[in-house]
Amino acid sequence: MGIKDVREYLRQWDREKDILEFDTSSATVELAAQAVGVEPARIAKTLAFKNGEGALLVVAAGDARVDNKKFKQEFGFKPHMLSPDEALALTGHPVGGVCPFGLKQDVPVFCDVSLKRFDTVFPACGSSNSAIELTCEELDLYSRNVRWVDVCRGWA
């Protein structure tokens, strides 16, 4: 699971060789920014929330924080993060490497508008020491984004 699944998934766009793997951890926004060499805001973090018996993913800029009121208005329920075990079971990726690619189950993905201010962003690739540089258009396509949402604060 994890990075192997993401590598296979990204092969359909011939992007599997563009995955960056680091000798150090990229499991947090700060560590990922250091590993990649960019400002933390350009890290596209994937947040996993409970949605009934399943989950939904929100991909947001590294400096954005989920706004509970906006989230509830958008999705109709209060945001509750998945536990590490739930995240692994539903996405196939461990916490620190959760990403919207090569998912174990059919989990809907929503990209937050906080990412759109950047030409490129860096989501993880299924492990705690990986990333890939993508345009927002590529992220939209590769993640099978349901739609762009505005559920975060603190980034504008």
Rank of each mutant, 00 (worst) to 15 (best):
L31C: 03
L31Y: 04
A32V: 04
A32G: 14
A33V: 03
A35E: 07
A35M: 10
A35D: 13
A35H: 09
V36A: 11
V36C: 12
V36G: 11
E39S: 13
P40V: 07
R42T: 01
R42I: 01
I43S: 07
A44I: 08
K45W: 11
T46P: 05
T46G: 02
L47F: 09
L47Y: 05
L47H: 08
A48K: 03
A48F: 12
F49W: 14
K50M: 14
N51A: 14
N51M: 13
G54Q: 13
A55M: 11
A55V: 08
L56N: 06
L56E: 06
L57E: 07
V58C: 05
V58K: 08
V58A: 01
V58Q: 00
V59Y: 04
V59M: 06
A60G: 10
A60H: 00
A61D: 01
A61M: 02
G62H: 01
G62D: 01
A64W: 10
A64R: 00
R65N: 08
R65G: 09
R65E: 14
V66A: 14
V66C: 06
N68S: 07
K69S: 14
K70A: 13
K70Q: 10
K70C: 12
K72Y: 02
K72M: 13
Q73N: 14
F75N: 08
F75L: 02
F75D: 03
F75G: 06
F77A: 11
F77H: 14
H80L: 13
M81I: 06
L82V: 04
L82R: 00
S83Q: 14
S83T: 15
D85F: 10
E86C: 11
A87T: 12
A89K: 15
A89Y: 14
A89H: 15
L90N: 04
T91R: 01
T91V: 09
T91E: 04
T91H: 06
H93Q: 09
H93K: 03
P94F: 04
P94W: 05
P94G: 01
G96R: 04
G96K: 06
V98D: 01
V98W: 00
C99N: 02
C99D: 03
P100E: 03
L103W: 00
K104Y: 12
K104P: 05
Q105E: 15
Q105V: 08
D106G: 11
D106R: 02
D106Q: 14
V107W: 04
V107R: 02
V107A: 00
V109Y: 02
F110P: 05
F110D: 10
F110R: 10
C111S: 09
D112W: 05
D112Y: 03
D112T: 04
V113Q: 08
V113A: 12
V113P: 02
S114T: 11
S114W: 07
S114Q: 04
S114G: 12
L115W: 04
K116E: 13
K116R: 15
F118S: 05
F118L: 00
F118Q: 01
D119Q: 03
T120N: 13
T120Y: 12
T120I: 09
V121C: 03
V121S: 08
V121Y: 03
V121N: 00
